[in-house]
């Protein structure tokens, strides 16, 4: 009986000492791995807002949290600053259909703080997580990649894949010209005054051209 008690005490003590030693070393190394010198007052304000609105119970960050909404660890590097700013200001505009994020009616300075926070998070050395996808989705032609990256498929479907809120685009190329499509991308309400489609005028011109080329090619 005494042997197990001794084993218990020894096992716990040894584990705790090793664990605390590794913790001290980790905290030291994490300063460089997380670029802690770049944690500005704005980044901290962003983290406060992130916690205040309990974002982490829908989204995962560093893979931890709710599994209801996308992981935001690399949001900044994937979506870019302009997209994030527009989205945080009015989420429904970017995702008019399907699962939605509430509009928290954030001030511009609050949006700025959240973007600064997400930028800092995206630069944490996460030992290569999340892994780069290996499938075909990344090797799609440019236009289709932009179609997916801008979440056009949330509303529009192509060959049965995508949303149903907006017209099916499987044969859009045989119905509309490339110029018409470009106009639609830039100013949807030019064609239909009550269109709920957001404008994508903010995309770089080359991306808009690539997207219009791709869609015009869908015969």
């Amino acid at each position: 009986m005494h042997a197990t008690r001794t084993a218990l005490v020894t096992a716990t003590l040894i584990s705790a000492i090793i664990f605390l030693g590794m913790t001290a070393d980790s905290l030291r190394k994490m300063r460089a791995r997380t670029h802690s010198d770049q944690i500005s007052a704005e980044v901290i304000e962003g983290k406060r807002l992130w916690q205040h609105y309990d974002c982490n119970d829908c989204h995962t960050i560093l893979g931890i949290g709710g599994y209801y909404a996308p992981d935001v660890t690399k949001s900044y590097s994937i979506r870019g600053e302009a997209w994030l700013r527009q989205f945080l200001k009015d989420p429904a505009k970017m995702y008019p259909a399907g699962r939605q994020m509430p509009n928290f009616r954030l001030e511009d300075s609050q949006v700025g703080a959240l973007v600064a926070y997400l930028k800092w998070v995206s630069e944490i050395d996460t030992n290569g997580w999340p892994p780069a996808p290996q499938g075909v989705a990344r090797e799609e032609p440019g236009g289709h990649r932009i179609f997916l990256a801008q979440h056009c498929n949330t509303c529009h479907a192509i060959e049965g894949s995508g949303g149903t809120l907006a017209p099916d685009l499987t044969h859009i190329g045989s119905q509309k010209s490339k110029d018409w499509i470009l106009d639609q991308i830039n100013n949807p309400r030019g064609h239909k005054a009550d269109s709920i489609m957001p404008s994508f005028a903010q995309l770089p011109e080359t991306e808009k051209q690539e997207l219009a080329d791709y869609l015009a090619g869908l015969k």
Binding site: L8, S26, M30, T34, G63, T126, N127, P130
Partner: peptide, 19 residues
């Protein structure tokens, strides 16, 4: 305790902690 204390490490793979 022997496995669980240091086993916390399986949560330290991807959160900015050392390799």
């Amino acid at each position: 305790l022997l496995t669980g204390i240091i086993g916390t490490g399986h949560h330290y793979y991807w959160i900015g902690t050392p390799h």
